[in-house]
Simulated assay, not measured.
Amino acid sequence: MSDDGPLDLPAPTRDGGTGPGVFIAFEGGEGAGKSTQVRLLCDWLTAGGRAARATFEPGGTPAGAAVRAIVLDRAHTGLAARAEALLYAADRAQHAAAVLRPALAAGEVVVSDRYIDSSLAYQGAGRTIPLDDVSAISRWATEGLRPHLTVLLDLPPETGLARARGRAEADRLESESLEFHQRVRATFRTLAGGDPDRYLVLDATRPVDEIAAGVRARVAALLEAGA
């Protein structure tokens, strides 16, 4: 990978490409609390008069919902690792075209539960596909779109899996081995360490309100700086 950053992608700008919006992604392992923090952040932004849109991957579009059904269904345990990576890339291409770019062009703050880093961590490290390969297809799928800010909710996989499995039957990824999820966590942390100005890493074992306060402080600074 390039020394310029984990994906070597241009950041979205406010004077071209993606328009005046702000793009924030939440990343982390299973049970880290991403969906909760996405909702809390959007509620806070809306209360402050900002146009905010919550979205997610995989499945944030009608076509993506069909992809989600494949990649998370335990019936598809024989799915080849590269086929899985391409399915996630297809979901992300549609998500970027149909949701992310239009919302950013309209000046919205777009908050996504997962984005490219999840593919690097799960399909790259988890499935042991070279990260450069996963990066390349992600770059192509999104036409170089990356977040202004990525919030990594860091959690030991043992804790996260216990949370996830306690609320519903484990899906296809949640059913993977502890070693798989340890590789996923390590890669998330490496990505964040390689581009610290664009990441906020928070301890996901902390209380929900404390995590939300940390997110709000960083997002407020981002908005004040004009992204």
Score class of each variant (00 low, 15 high):
M1H: 00
M1S: 00
D3Y: 07
D3E: 15
D4S: 14
D4T: 13
G5D: 00
G5S: 03
A11C: 11
T13L: 12
D15C: 11
G17V: 07
V22K: 00
F23K: 02
A25T: 08
A25H: 02
F26L: 06
G29Q: 04
A32S: 12
A32T: 11
K34Y: 15
S35F: 04
T36M: 09
V38I: 15
V38M: 10
R39G: 07
L41S: 03
A47L: 13
G48A: 15
G49P: 09
R50N: 14
A51V: 15
R53T: 15
P58V: 07
T61F: 01
A66T: 13
V67M: 11
V67C: 11
A75L: 06
A83M: 08
L86D: 04
Y88Q: 10
A89F: 05
R92V: 02
R92H: 08
H95G: 06
A97N: 07
V99T: 11
L100Y: 06
A105K: 09
V110F: 03
V111A: 13
D113V: 12
D117G: 04
A121P: 01
Q123S: 06
G124H: 00
G126I: 02
G126H: 01
L131Y: 03
L131G: 00
L131P: 00
V134M: 02
R139M: 12
T142F: 06
E143D: 15
G144V: 10
H148K: 08
L149A: 12
T150P: 07
V151P: 08
L152K: 02
L152Q: 04
D154P: 05
T159L: 12
R165G: 12
R167L: 08
R167V: 10
E169G: 15
A170R: 09
A170I: 14
A170H: 12
R172M: 03
E174S: 11
E179G: 15
A186D: 08
D197P: 04
R198A: 07
A204W: 03
V208C: 14
V208N: 13
V208L: 14
V208H: 12
E210S: 09
I211M: 09
I211S: 05
A212P: 04
V215H: 05
R216L: 12
A217V: 14
A217P: 15
R218F: 06
A221W: 03
L223R: 03
E224I: 09
G226V: 09
